[in-house]
Write a protein that binds this DNA or RNA. Structure first.
Length: 783
DNA sequence: CAGGCCGTGCTTTTT
DNA sequence: GCACGGCCTG
């Protein structure tokens, strides 16, 4: 309790400050307890009412886990536990936000510290950076930065970057870090390994890479955990303080914790072992990034006297869905036996539909969805389409767009990873952390200033030797040996120009960003360009400014650059999914965890895809079991209807290959209703043909009609290769809206994602403005 | 030093 | 099939 006052500040604004003792948040104004227990099952209630000591909640899919966790938090507060003593850790920002909202709904104004592992560690590291040789203004290197840095290291160590690509080495280093293997440990273990070239190379590269990161006052994703683990391990006082400070710790999705996360949680639960973990071994799908399913399996041994609560009743899915999911998962050997039971209806049978190829598969689903929505039976947001690999989304996106089915994609490449966004962010990073060599390299010649790679390397070598920041070295570039006169002058000019920015006084984050964009003239060339790509880039930078402005507005009390960059670095694409967007959601099976939809299509249930070929050669079959769990997770997202699909041919990297049905299908065949649509007389696409909107889209864009807006495909798809929306909106164009009927476009505004279209409709001269990318508007030719 | 072309290798999943 | 990095040329 004592520690709250002192540390409380640190965690604001996420943690409420101490309340007046008179107010008791566990009760409403009439003295009734807020935490309702009546609508809980006995085991749910047991978990909610558990206060002290370790607690393991084994929660099957759809068993009301979030409800239990949030109620339990509320119950703890009701029991007099101060909200500031509770720490809840999730894996995704989305889960954290949701939990925050639900706790807030139960006990308005109560702000518990709810955070993802990485964010929690980032904060902690900010506060105690000196423990691990960092400064509080450290920056976070994302995957692109990591690879860029690795390439520099490879260059220096004269490692052949062709046989040992940065991405691969990065994965190896990441894996080592996840297993708590630090450079020295790794080198000690693998330096001698003759049999494995890659390990020998990593043993050389890893220490150099880590040194460079530290030099740049930077950390990668894994370091966030690793550094915190180190400080907790090496500073008993700090560990004890935090253990005391967070008397009640909750960890969600515990089956997905890796070695570092496990140790961190452990360290916070020694003196006050009020640790509650929730999870489901059957939903462990992150083994490939170091998650240890054993962590949850051995919880009772790790925390003696632990209470174990099993939530087996499923409130989400139909009996048919659960039987199929169960038929599949029982084939896993390494597993705690658990059955899925529900009082829900039987529901329609789980179907397996077989198609000729991916195009038929996609078009059939699109037609299906349209039919259900047009008949009023469903809305678009009732549907999800899940797949094993991101590349499968493409065919679906295309078919949906062709058919006028609105969709949103949780894609692998995020907005924040686009080059132009990264460039602008690198300026911000350098402003925060002048030591950041990765950021410096990125922006020193952007826009082009005549500073080449050679000059930069020479300069940075000098800076390293003299202990200067890159900018300090650049300002005295003429005195740096080895630089050409031209290079030195350009560098000195750059440094002088940069210093004249007065970044410190730019005020808000948005102000700072605006200053940077204006002063660099970064976007200038694009403004006059007519190329679609350039306009897109411009729009992305504008969007970045909007993101910053939004951040400023949401954090008037904390306009700090580090907090902004942190939130940007730790944002993920799944976080941007909007369940109420009125769109079909397309995502990978991994991204689907924790979500639910009335109707789920699970495409590409084929051998080498699901299970993925890369999982097949794991020696103990653990890879295969994880694939099975992945399918299990996907299936159990469905509330009412589940459709699995496979095709007979599929394009893999350009080649069309014959596909083999997944073994998983055989394992649950008794629960599947098989419909072979591959040998039908009629083309699926023809069957679905005669709908009005479809005919309209077929002649959507008359010859010569300029593509005036960019669509959801370019932005939401997040990929450069996304097919541009075949639909351009232009002034005067005739469009149709499903509710308002025919109309004419009378105004256009904004760019890309925020492109707006104002339409005057024929009925009652109604005027409406839509966000182009999200609107159901269908062009019907030019008026 | 910059821009363009060519070849490789990629794709499993992500904080 | 594509995107990226590396290489070569101007």
């Amino acid at each position: 309790m004592e520690s709250n006052g002192e540390h409380g500040e640190e965690w604001s604004p996420s943690v409420a400050t101490r309340r007046s003792p008179v107010y008791h948040p566990g009760f409403d104004d009439h003295g009734r307890p807020r935490v309702n227990l009546d609508d809980l099952t006995p085991s749910q209630r047991q978990a909610v009412q558990h206060v002290d000591g370790p607690l393991l909640v084994l929660a099957g899919p759809g068993s009301g886990k979030t409800r239990v966790v949030t109620r339990r938090i509320a119950h703890l507060v009701e029991q007099g536990v101060h909200p500031g003593e509770i720490l809840a850790i999730t894996f995704t920002n989305k889960a954290a936000r949701e939990m925050q909202e639900r706790v807030d709904a139960l006990l308005p104004g109560t702000r518990v510290f709810i955070s993802t592992f990485h964010r929690f560690c980032a904060r902690l590291l900010r506060r105690h950076a000196d423990h691990v040789g960092l400064h509080p203004n450290y920056t976070i290197a994302d995957t692109t930065d990591q690879r860029a840095l690795l390439r520099v290291v490879l260059d220096e160590l004269d490692v052949d970057g062709v046989h040992f690509p940065a991405a691969k080495l990065n994965a190896a280093i990441s894996k080592a870090k996840n297993d708590l293997l630090r450079p020295d440990d790794y080198t000690a273990r693998f330096a001698e390994s003759i049999g494995n070239h890659e390990q020998a190379v990593v043993a050389r590269v890893y220490p150099a890479y880590q040194k460079r990161l530290l030099e740049a006052n930077s950390v990668d994703f894994d370091d966030l955990l690793l550094h915190v683990h180190e400080m907790l391990r090496d500073s008993p006082e700090l560990r004890r303080d935090l253990d005391e400070r967070f008397r009640y710790v909750l960890v969600d999705e515990y089956q997905d914790t890796n070695a570092a996360q496990y140790e961190i949680v452990r360290a916070l639960s020694i003196d006050k072992p009020n640790l509650c973990v929730t999870g489901d071994p059957d939903q462990s799908i992150y083994g490939w990034r170091g998650a240890k399913i054993e962590n949850i399996l051995r919880f009772e041994r790790d925390y003696p006297g632990a209470t174990v609560v099993r939530l087996q009743e499923n409130f989400r899915s139909t009996k048919a869905v659960l039987r199929a999911a169960d038929a599949l998962i029982v084939h896993n050997k390494k597993r705690k036996a658990k059955s899925l039971v529900t009082d829900n209806d039987e529901g329609p049978a789980v179907e397996l539909r077989v198609f000729r190829d991916a195009r038929h598969e996609a078009e059939s689903i699109a037609a299906d969805v349209r039919r259900a929505v047009e008949s009023g039976e469903r809305t678009y947001s009732d549907f999800a389409v899940c797949y094993r690999v991101n590349s499968l989304s493409r065919e679906i996106e295309v078919a949906f767009r062709r058919d006028g089915v609105p969709s949103q994609v949780a894609a692998g490449v995020s907005f924040f990873e686009r080059v132009e966004v990264k460039d602008v962010l690198a300026y911000l990073k350098l402003a925060l952390n002048p030591a950041d060599r990765v950021a410096f390299r990125r922006i020193v010649n952007k826009p082009v200033r005549g500073i080449g790679k050679k000059s930069v390397s020479t300069l940075l070598a000098h800076a390293d030797a003299k202990g200067l920041t890159p900018l300090e070295a650049a300002s005295k570039a003429t005195a740096v040996p080895g630089l050409t006169k031209r290079g030195a002058n350009a560098l000195a000019r750059f440094a002088e120009w940069y210093d004249s920015f007065d970044l410190a006084n730019a005020g808000s984050v948005a102000g700072l960003l605006r200053t940077i964009v204006d002063r660099t003239g970064y976007t200038a060339a694009w403004k006059s360009s007519s190329s679609e790509d350039d306009l897109q880039r411009l729009a992305n930078v504008e969007e970045m400014l909007a993101v910053a402005a939004r951040y400023d507005a949401e954090h008037p009390d904390d306009p700090s650059l580090e907090a902004f960059l942190e939130s940007v670095s730790l944002a993920s694409e799944v976080d941007s999914l909007d369940p109420d967007a009125g769109e079909v959601t397309l995502m990978t099976l991994h991204a689907a965890k924790g979500l639910e939809f009335p109707v789920v299509y699970l495409v590409g249930v084929e051998h080498n895809l699901l299970p993925h070929e890369r999982s097949l050669n794991s020696p103990d079959g653990s890879g295969l079991e994880e694939e099975r769990r992945l399918l299990f997770v996907g299936m159990t997202r469905a509330r009412e209807q589940l459709v699995l699909t496979r095709t007979e041919r599929r394009d893999v990297r350009g080649r069309s290959l014959h596909s083999i049905p997944s073994d998983f299908l055989r394992e649950m065949q008794s629960e599947l209703l098989v419909r072979d649509l591959a040998r039908d007389e009629f083309d699926v696409s023809q069957e679905a043909e005669p709908t009005p909107a479809r005919r309209h889209t077929a002649r959507t864009r008359p010859e010569g009609q300029p593509l005036l807006t960019t669509g959801a495909a370019l932005l939401d798809g997040g990929r450069r290769d996304a097919v541009p929306l075949p639909v351009g909106f232009a002034l005067g164009m005739q469009v149709r809206h499903p509710r308002y009927g025919r109309g004419t476009i009378v105004d256009l505004g904004g760019y890309s994602k925020h492109r707006t279209v104002t339409v005057e409709f024929e009925t009652d001269a109604r005027r409406e403005t839509f966000v182009a990318a999200k609107s159901p508007l269908q062009p019907i030719g030019v008026g």
